[in-house]
């Protein structure tokens, strides 16, 4: 068993056969629902996430939340009870979900041009259907797509990616659940890939500060790669919808 416990084999392959700097396969789809203003589905390896965006709309509930100079961004993260190996008791509201909701809000607020929509509220709901490591990055990427589908102005894409360190030397990109279990510190980065700004950074364990730069660079490179994949998907979606409507709304 001990042989299988390695993050990176001698010939440079990982548990699932990827190289150190390879992402898992990303598949995504925009506009999967009709009821919300925008929605998206994203698979990153085996991690599967649904995102729905409502808004911008009038602030419902406690009206005191409304802000005169910006929109209120409201995020809710939840995990389906069947998404993990062990059946979850609470799909939302536990400490981990709340934390991810807050982090999601932080990342999205950095990208959304909230100042354009005063007195309004934007709701983002994200649900994990299958958790296989890298939940937070998958949620950020899915939420970005859903926001774009909803036609909400963004400064640019906001993408997230994880990176780890194998054998105390080689940075690993896009960590899967198995690699998370084996160990090794996981660095999660959410960034605006075009300008290279980091909007959120989190570490699960510590490693020597000398390694930080190269792991961070790797994660940022991952964000850029993810951005180009998402961009491709958005363009083909727009092209598809636009051809069906005959580009009529744009004449």
């Amino acid at each position: 068993m001990s042989k299988n416990r390695e993050l990176l084999s001698k010939i440079g392959l990982r548990q699932d056969g990827r190289r150190a700097d390879e992402l898992r396969r990303i598949r995504c789809k925009l506009g999967v629902f009709t009821e919300p203003d925008g929605s998206a589905y994203l698979e990153q390896g085996l991690t599967k996430v649904l995102a729905a965006v409502y808004g911008p709309h009038q602030v419902r509930g406690s009206r005191s939340k409304a802000q005169h100079d910006s929109a209120v961004v409201n995020c809710q993260f939840s995990m389906a009870v069947f998404s993990t190996g062990e059946r979850k008791k609470r799909p939302r509201g536990d400490r981990k979900s709340t934390e991810i909701s807050i982090h999601l809000r932080q990342a999205l607020t950095a990208a959304i041009k909230v100042e354009l929509y005063p007195w309004t509220q934007i709701d983002v709901y994200v649900e994990v259907l299958h958790a296989d490591g890298g939940i937070y990055p998958a949620c950020v990427n899915a939420a970005t797509l859903a926001l774009i589908d909803a036609g909400i102005p963004l400064k640019e894409y906001v993408c997230a990616c994880t990176a780890s360190l194998a054998n105390n030397d080689v940075p690993l990109l896009d960590v899967s659940h198995q690699e998370e279990i084996i160990g090794g510190p996981t660095l999660t980065v959410a960034a605006l890939p075009m300008s290279g700004k980091i909007v959120l950074m989190e570490m699960s364990q510590r490693f020597h500060v000398d390694h930080l730069q190269k792991v961070l660079d790797k994660a940022l490179q991952g964000c850029k790669d993810i951005k180009s994949i998402l961009d491709e998907a958005v363009k083909s979606h727009i092209q598809d919808v636009g051809s069906s409507t005959g580009w009529a709304s744009t004449t």
Binding site: D37, I148, V234, G242
Partner: peptide
């Protein structure tokens, strides 16, 4: 936003295919 360009003289705007 994601959409196509509309130009009226000097004014450039991008119209999303779907919005409120």
């Amino acid at each position: 936003v994601a959409g196509v360009k509309e130009q009226v003289n000097n004014l450039i705007s991008i119209r999303p295919l779907k919005s409120r």
